[in-house]
Design a protein around this nucleic acid. Structure first.
Lengths: 201, 201
DNA sequence: TGTACATCAGTGAACGCGCGTTCACTGATGTAC
DNA sequence: TGTACATCAGTGAACGCGCGTTCACTGATGTAC
């Protein structure tokens, strides 16, 4: 019998939590958010369908944990992109962040999708909201500078950040929704051209 | 017994198709794409769960019909916005289209969501792809002028249109994903401020 | 105007599926003496 | 070093659910003569 590369080798006692998260992420990547199921995750982890209950209250909690990690990851990448492009100036850093954002989305479409599917997530979870805010402030700090952010996200004072975010988020969504022939090519050739459109402003 | 306003009065023989579509749209509006089900649609139409089969091959076909109508509606609104703002000049017309696009999305979030959930739609359906293209060309014709469009959507020649589309689409998605406190207020006060950011380019 | 027949527009019961969650349970591990 | 016990980290069978689709069927409508 050949190994099925979908299944993970059975974790040691006590290592189940990360194993479940890893299997769940792979399943998401393969089948998308709509194709996800807890039972299939358990199957791939080589574990009973009830096993997750020891670590996660329910499916929503597991998905929220994944989305939280994803936002943290995104924030890290935005910060890294900013750092490495900083020597070339502020405009270059902003562009680098935009490219990092889109690359994140296109490399892991299902995970990116999940992050915004609030109906499936526990949006009251503190870690989740904190991670999401952190990613947002990575953008905001760079675009608007160090000014304090207003309490409300729809304050027009945030317009510069939200304009930039809308642009990049829209590009990422369109790419993942199949609006372009090839998302990766679009990332390399089309996105720079799009960003050029606005480089004056 | 009080009327349940969810249920539609039982359609006359032969009028089932539009009645099903209407009930399905209402159900979508209430429960979102993930909460949609054919059986519930049938229930609300006062009809057997097998009834739809006479008009639609399967669930996918029904959803595709709704998405097709939605794209046609969107295209109509984009064209109307352009027409009524045309006297004020090209820039005003482009802005008016952007506002019409976002308003469409925010007024019917679930329908807008469905239009991009290609996993649930029959993307080989001719009417569907035609309607989607028509909406796209409403944007493209105005932004780039009458130049012929390249075959591929990720051709950098389309960058001006795609940049504008990304911006507006991203704003609409963020609004519907709950990124702003109040989508309708964001539409009225924030979107104009965002468009101002780019009005120079 | 009446009747025989064909087609239309559904009906309603049933099938089989995979799902999330619960429950009583159990073997493995750790701890106290 | 050995034993008794408690807790940990799950097991696996079962429950009940709603779903999309199929199937043989049937009453209503339309048509021909």
């Amino acid at each position: 019998m050949s190994d099925n590369s979908n299944t993970v080798k059975k974790p040691r006692r006590g290592d189940l939590r990360p194993a479940l998260l890893q299997a769940a992420e792979r399943l998401l990547a393969e089948r998308g958010v709509d194709g996800f199921s807890l039972r299939e995750t358990a199957r791939r982890t080589g574990v009973s369908p009830a096993a997750h209950a020891y670590y996660f209250k329910d499916t929503r909690a597991l998905l929220t944990a994944i989305a939280t990690a994803a936002f943290d990851d995104l924030a890290d990448r935005l910060a890294a992109a900013e750092r490495s492009a900083a020597p070339a100036g502020r405009v270059a850093a902003i562009r680098a962040q935009a490219e990092a954002y889109a690359a994140f989305a296109i490399d892991a479409p299902a995970k990116f999708d999940l992050m915004w599917r609030k109906g499936l997530l526990d949006t009251d979870d503190g870690a989740f909201t904190q991670a999401a805010e952190r990613a947002f402030f990575c953008l905001d700090r760079l675009v608007r500078g160090e000014q304090a952010a207003p309490a409300n996200k729809d304050d027009p004072a945030l317009a510069p950040t939200l304009a930039w975010w809308s642009l990049v988020h829209g590009f990422a969504c369109l790419a993942n929704e199949g609006a372009f022939a090839d998302p990766h090519k679009a990332l390399e050739r089309l996105l720079p051209a799009i960003l050029d459109q606005y480089s004056a402003g």
